[in-house]
């Protein structure tokens, strides 16, 4: 009951955030966005045709009217039809979102998992050469651009100059083997890029936790070092770890996949959105931006509830 109340209160405070995000993105992407009037008209259009097309696209209405219209669409989750393909926006999203998720998820999960494992190893051997090597390699990993990693991995694993094991681009997934076939190289690239950042972050968290009094006490009582690491250290460092993972979810789903999708030619949300920005396909943009904002607010709420689950000392106020 307490949790429910808390959730509701958080939802209400999330409303200004959703309004802000939608207002800024609406202003940028729709108000100042590309004008599609002349794309839809033939050569030498008459004044009436121009007015008619502008009316169809809703350009003749005032900013406020169009914005409230958008909010109404967002509330009802009805975004109409794409300007470019005429397909229903919701069906585009239903088609592309699973692709993006399937593409991003393995890399995201493994990148964080390996990050925590390496961080535990480094922190356990703190100051030792193992720690130094792990941290040195992490800084090197952080310094390589994502783009370079993608290009290099594609050459190494997919091209005829390299191992030629995986397809260069595309997404023809009908079975699990197809999936592994197409997802491996993008996954390896995203693990490579995120691992340095994750390891450094998690190591800092774990090292800080290792310096606490309860850990010293446990050590003094002769607790086994590995057990100490998992029970006293890792469990208590869960809050920053969860925060980091949760906050990257909404952005990873869209931004993270944009580069991978456009480089590997994978038809996911990132690619669709990017194309929509370039062509000024407003219904798609409105849907994606609005949904991302809502996802963000929900993430904040779930995050706070998870805090409570992990750490009973945190009160829901």
């Amino acid at each position: 009951m307490e949790t429910l109340q808390y959730t509701l209160r958080k939802l209400v405070t999330g409303i200004p955030l959703i309004l802000g995000v939608t207002l800024i993105s609406f202003t940028l992407m729709v108000h100042f966005g590309p004008d599609k009037t002349y794309d839809l008209l033939g050569k030498n259009p008459t004044q009436e045709q121009i007015t008619e097309v502008r009316h169809q696209l809703g350009y003749d209405k005032s900013f406020v009217v169009r914005y409230t219209q958008y909010l109404k669409e967002l509330a009802t989750m009805n975004f109409g039809y794409s300007d470019s393909s005429g397909e229903k926006v919701s069906s585009i999203l239903i088609r592309t979102m699973p692709v993006s998720l399937a593409l991003i998820l393995p890399g995201f999960v493994l990148g964080n998992l390996f990050g925590v494992i390496l961080a535990l190893i480094a922190a356990y051997h703190r100051g030792h050469w193992i720690d130094k090597i792990i941290m040195g390699v992490s800084v090197m990993g952080m310094s390589v651009s994502f783009l370079i990693v993608i290009i290099a991995f594609q050459v190494i694993f997919s091209s005829s100059q390299g191992l030629d094991l995986f397809p260069v681009r595309g997404w023809d997934v009908y079975s699990f083997t197809d999936y592994i076939h197409y997802v491996t190289v993008p996954t390896l690239a995203s693990i490579f890029v995120s691992l340095g950042y994750n390891t450094r972050f998690y190591r800092a968290v774990i090292v800080e936790e290792m310096g606490r009094d309860h850990v010293r006490t446990a050590k003094a009582f002769g607790a086994h070092p590995i057990e100490l690491l998992f029970k006293s250290v890792l469990k208590n460092s869960l809050i920053p770890i969860i925060t980091r993972i949760m906050f990257s979810i909404p952005l990873v789903v869209i931004s993270g996949s944009l580069l991978l999708e456009s480089y590997f030619g994978i038809p996911g949300v990132g690619k669709v959105t990017y194309d929509a920005i370039l062509s000024g396909d407003q219904p798609i943009l409105k849907a994606v931006v609005g949904l991302t904002a809502i996802m963000f607010v929900f993430t904040l709420i779930i995050n706070d509830i998870l805090y409570k689950v992990v750490d009973p000392r945190i009160s829901l106020k």
Partner: peptide, 20 residues
């Protein structure tokens, strides 16, 4: 303002500003 700016996906935001 900070919360709002942080919750817009970065590359979409850049693309939108580039167009605006």
């Amino acid at each position: 303002v900070m919360g709002v700016l942080d919750s817009i996906p970065f590359y979409l935001f850049v693309a939108a500003i580039a167009f605006a």
